[in-house]
Design a binder for these strands. Sequence first.
DNA 1: CTGAAAGCGCTAACAT
DNA 2: ATGTTAGCGCTTTCAG
Lengths: 331, 331
Amino acid sequence: MGATIIDVANKCGYSKATVSRAFISPETVSEAAKERVYAAAKELNYTPNTIARALVRQHTENIAFIIHEKQYPTLLNPFYAPVLEAVMQEAAKRNYSVFIATSNDVQLPNGDVYIKKHMDGVIFAGQTDVNAVEELRRQNIPVVMLNHELDLKNLVSVTVEHFQGAVQATTHLYECGHKKIGLLAGRFSDQVCEARLNGYMSVLATHDLPVDPRFIVDIEPTMEEAETVFAKILQLPDRPTAFFCTNDTIAAGAVKAALRAGLRVPADIAIVGFDDSIVSRTIEPELTTIRIDAAVMGKIAAQQLFALINKEELQMTHIKIPTSLVVRKTT
Amino acid sequence: MGATIIDVANKCGYSKATVSRAFISPETVSEAAKERVYAAAKELNYTPNTIARALVRQHTENIAFIIHEKQYPTLLNPFYAPVLEAVMQEAAKRNYSVFIATSNDVQLPNGDVYIKKHMDGVIFAGQTDVNAVEELRRQNIPVVMLNHELDLKNLVSVTVEHFQGAVQATTHLYECGHKKIGLLAGRFSDQVCEARLNGYMSVLATHDLPVDPRFIVDIEPTMEEAETVFAKILQLPDRPTAFFCTNDTIAAGAVKAALRAGLRVPADIAIVGFDDSIVSRTIEPELTTIRIDAAVMGKIAAQQLFALINKEELQMTHIKIPTSLVVRKTT
DNA sequence: CTGAAAGCGCTAACAT
DNA sequence: ATGTTAGCGCTTTCAG
């Protein structure tokens, strides 16, 4: 269809090699040649064929951002969206493009892991199948894990200080004077859940606060589910005066349930979320939450990946993003 | 690095061609051969090189979803996220991967349009530079426009019945008994703005409602801006009792401003949004809004693109997604 | 500064 | 059913 390098070579009277150079390293080509090459290229509507180039160069300048199926839909996930954006930005700086995929693209129907497209590197977001990662590495494709750790040698990961965040959230509630603090936990990956639960429990222990299993509940992490479940919790006798919700979406659901029940937030019930995602500022009153800087998270993940791709020495293999308390209107 | 088809051919004693066939059309290869090929492949950790394949096949099984820079960040945009998800799903069905990019990836620093990667087709979401589209088509790459029309021959597009939607919104407000209805319009593309404004105006005209320029305002389409602007509007004398906001994010900002001003929604001020995005169900009270089925929008766009890629006859070149009123709690 | 030529890894006729 | 072979379009030594 399109013109090839040969067409422009013929048209301008130089060889393929010179045409190629004119595009790749113009400084090694005479002015005269450049002029004629560019003119011919323009006239023929020539554009270098990146896939041919990739074949010889052995790299594609593509990276993939892969979401484990269980986390799908991810783009709708207010937590991952800004990290993907940051990744895209880092990629753009280096002239890389990003593919976005689910684990489907990595697994063959027969269960084998298949690298459907050639990627120079891959970022796995969220809970991820070990096989997929191992397979990729077996193909010498650099991998960085985001928000999930796998027990693989030299695997680089960037995760979050979940424990610390949970401690900040719970402590804040305690410092606001709450003695009975409940937990509304979303069923994310075990790693995340466990760390956040531990953080919460440790604060209760530190301050000798009561641990009431009726008020430590697991739910599917959707706003609807949070709303439904929380509406019931609100009717229980001796319910806590405050709840730590393990993400903003859940917290928003809780706030909605409280508001609908005619309660005042935070006067009648205090809530703190987690992530500082966009939903924390959408709900009114706005959520007090634990901030994770998703942009730096994405940026660092991308930087690590590019370091790997360029075979640079990595300073650290496990990076943990710190969290911080953002006090708004629900506490 | 990785093993090539030759390595496995040597190892299993068959030719390259047979190995290739074993992967592409297993039914044309003897059981014995398949067995040995797969064994050798497994042992060598062989995986077909997709870029070599793409070079000979002249197609990559990749499509791109491109967002015009002005719409960035798009993934955060609650309207496009579900559209993209639908596109990804359609692509996955056909074993295609999707590339996500901003107009940066399409434009060279010098302003030329450069097709950085070879894509079998491209979906442009939102306001888009004509040059980019023309250049793509010059390279014979199928394009479908999403939510934006360009005056190019045979350009296929899928857009929204913006006018109809605005009429539905405004009419609903009128039917709720409102006589003074304001407009809080986000500065999207001219096409969208104009259609929605016209829809609004036509309803005012139909019912002989007053047109007050003080209450027909343009803003940047962010929640913060909506909040700020709306807070001021609320203080103006003789303000409308209802507002049509041209998207849910703006509507949410308006609701927040009203709530903060101590107003009851909808008793003191009614609001209707547009899009039926996730934010319409995040804010409390939940937004009455105009629904656009983003999933079908994405699906149709993808289907049109694949039809183009497969050189099928298209039934329609301009598809408009209908809108519908969703009454919730703000009216 | 420019050209010739050897691949990059794979597919798809065309033979056998 | 399997093998041979000619590219796909480009980059990159290596010569000149």
